[in-house]
Amino acid sequence: MPAGRSPLNRTRVVGAAVQLADASGMAAVTMRATAAALGVEAMSLYHHVANRADLVDGMVDAVFAEIELPDGGGNWRDHLRRLAVSARRALQRHPWATGLLDSRSKPGPATLRHHDSVLGILRRSGFSPTMAIHALSVVDSYLYGNVLQERSLPLDELRGQEPAAAQLLESLPGNEYPYLAEIAAGRAGPDPAPGPDDEFAFGLDLILGALTPDDPAA
């Protein structure tokens, strides 16, 4: 090993793969490319990961490890709100992970710890096992859908929602779409309009407000 190079281990291998995926997407994550990023031969990786599937398992677990778990204070809605916000930020940092978080047949320790923590919050708050799964599923579905929707909006290339709204307003023909024009005019103006974070918080509060424990006295 060259002087100054840190020993190769699973954490370094997974970290290199995560950086590749962040920069170029999952298609760029191969054993050969990961090894090249680490300055080693591909065969060296097999001492730390069994194959590419095992590498992806580690990458997903690394994303789950970035999601902040509850600290014990507050009620179940506060906990789920903080978890969802933290998970959304993790997926914004690692957009490739959105479709992979629940896809692994061999979840890692951070993944298991995350799910167990969320279910524990709900069970201790009076949710039955079935209702706890329902609540977790609906929050996750909203979270993943929101992240995918936000990624599809052309806000980056237009440098924000105000320019995007202004462009839409200019492209609308006459008075043919008055309600679209009304919204676009409001968001293209000088007053701050609800941004993606506000929209996410609004929908999340609707969902959390509609969920009810089976036994509220628990």
Results as ranks from 00 to 15, higher is better:
27 A>W: 04
101 L>Y: 02
24 S>P: 01
152 S>R: 11
140 D>Y: 04
131 M>L: 06
54 D>Y: 02
157 E>T: 13
37 A>D: 12
78 D>F: 03
193 A>Y: 08
47 H>N: 12
154 P>V: 15
101 L>K: 00
89 R>I: 01
64 F>E: 13
145 G>H: 10
216 P>T: 12
32 R>D: 09
85 V>D: 04
111 T>M: 02
80 L>D: 12
17 A>H: 01
136 L>V: 08
196 P>T: 05
149 Q>L: 09
84 A>R: 11
91 L>S: 09
143 L>K: 07
137 S>T: 14
158 L>R: 11
102 D>L: 06
185 A>Q: 13
50 A>C: 07
109 P>Y: 07
149 Q>P: 05
213 P>R: 07
38 L>Q: 01
86 S>R: 09
3 A>M: 04
15 G>L: 01
128 S>Q: 01
26 M>N: 00
138 V>A: 00
181 A>H: 03
61 D>R: 05
81 R>L: 12
141 S>H: 07
155 L>H: 06
200 F>M: 02
168 L>T: 07
121 I>N: 10
107 P>K: 12
40 V>L: 03
126 G>C: 03
209 G>P: 09
56 V>Q: 10
102 D>W: 02
39 G>Q: 06
216 P>L: 06
64 F>T: 01
205 D>L: 06
111 T>D: 09
5 R>T: 11
105 S>N: 15
133 I>H: 10
77 R>L: 11
76 W>P: 09
154 P>K: 11
116 D>M: 12
204 L>K: 11
8 L>I: 00
81 R>T: 13
182 E>K: 14
118 V>K: 05
169 L>S: 08
17 A>D: 00
94 H>W: 00
62 A>N: 02
75 N>E: 14
66 E>I: 05
137 S>Y: 06
83 L>I: 15
53 A>Q: 13
205 D>G: 06
73 G>M: 15
186 G>E: 09
126 G>F: 13
138 V>I: 15
8 L>P: 00
195 G>D: 15
116 D>H: 08
75 N>M: 01
194 P>T: 07
19 Q>K: 06
1 M>R: 08
95 P>G: 11
114 H>D: 03
16 A>F: 04
188 A>I: 09
48 H>N: 03
23 A>C: 04
208 L>A: 12
